[in-house]
């Protein structure tokens, strides 16, 4: 490939890399307030592209930072790649990469772009943009929200700091996980948690059952029924009431109720 011939043609890989580094640093300085972006969909599901559109449109409006999507890779400073890099998109993506002037920044967008995402090991994908072209910035998300997109651009252009860092935790001596809600009988707790999930899904169910546990564990003298009624009156949500009543029924059926 003849991208960046001035660099590749004669120089050794080592100095090539140095020169590329220098060029990219200059580029970043030059494009700080004017970024032309060429979009490559290398086999994404469309959600990323929709979110890129969302970032362009009034609510997020990346044009205020001088970011503009251009129709031809020849105008591009930044190549924004979505998708898991399917086999069929390898050549088009390489052509687009080649077509853009040197140096250029490549951004891998979305889970598929970063690593291949859910498709990472399939027979017809290469598994991420960086398997085919060198990537400078990764924006994870499935899809990344427009705000995440803006953040990613700001990061790539050196305007914001990176928040996510690689972390490695090593189990400390004596690290132990305690059981939550020790006062609630285990069997009842499992039954309530299950019912809550069945009625309201894993997330809202967990929230409801946590609240329910708190109500159960509260010891302010009033009977539990009243506490629940108070709670429901405060929330004023018929559906919540229905679910909580179900939980109450289970409590009433007996503490160790393990029947389904």
């Amino acid at each position: 490939m003849n991208a960046a011939q001035p660099v590749t043609a004669t120089a050794s890989p080592e100095s090539e890399r140095e020169q590329a580094t220098r060029l990219k640093r200059t580029l970043l300085h030059d494009i700080r307030r004017s970024v032309y972006v060429f979009r490559i969909d290398s086999g994404g599901c469309n959600a990323c592209d929709i979110e890129i559109f969302a970032a362009l449109t009034p609510v997020f409006d990346v044009e205020r930072f001088g970011i503009k999507v251009v129709p031809s890779p020849r105008h591009a400073d930044v190549i924004l790649c979505t998708g898991a890099m399917t086999r069929a998109m390898r050549l088009p993506a390489l052509r687009a990469f080649d077509a853009a002037p040197d140096p250029k920044i490549v951004i891998a967008y979305g889970a598929c772009g970063c690593t291949g995402g859910i498709f990472h090991d399939l027979y017809c994908v290469w598994g991420g943009i960086d398997k085919i072209i060198p990537v400078d910035v990764y924006i994870p998300g499935c899809p990344p929200t427009p705000a995440a997109t803006i953040y990613g651009f700001a990061l790539g252009l050196g305007l914001l700091d990176q928040k996510l860092k690689a972390t490695h935790h090593v189990e400390a001596e004596g690290e132990q996980v305690t059981v939550t809600h020790p006062r609630i009988p285990y069997g009842l707790r499992i039954a309530l948690e299950r019912e809550a999930r069945r009625m309201a899904g894993y997330r809202q169910g967990r929230e409801i059952v946590e609240n329910f546990f708190i109500l159960m564990e509260q010891d302010d003298g009033a009977p539990i029924r009243e506490r629940i009624a108070d709670f429901l009156a405060r929330e004023n949500d018929p559906r919540l009431a229905e679910i909580v009543h179900r939980l109450e029924e289970i409590c009433a059926r007996g503490n160790g109720g393990t029947d389904q």
Binding site: L164, H168, H169
Partner: peptide, 26 residues
């Protein structure tokens, strides 16, 4: 155990692939 939960945090972009990994050793 509730050790993992999805947070509303979305600013995840990184410059280095290695920063995308979180590991824990037991």
């Amino acid at each position: 155990t509730g050790a993992i939960a999805l947070s509303p945090e979305y600013e995840l972009a990184v410059m280095d692939r290695a920063d995308l990994y979180q590991t824990a050793e037991f």
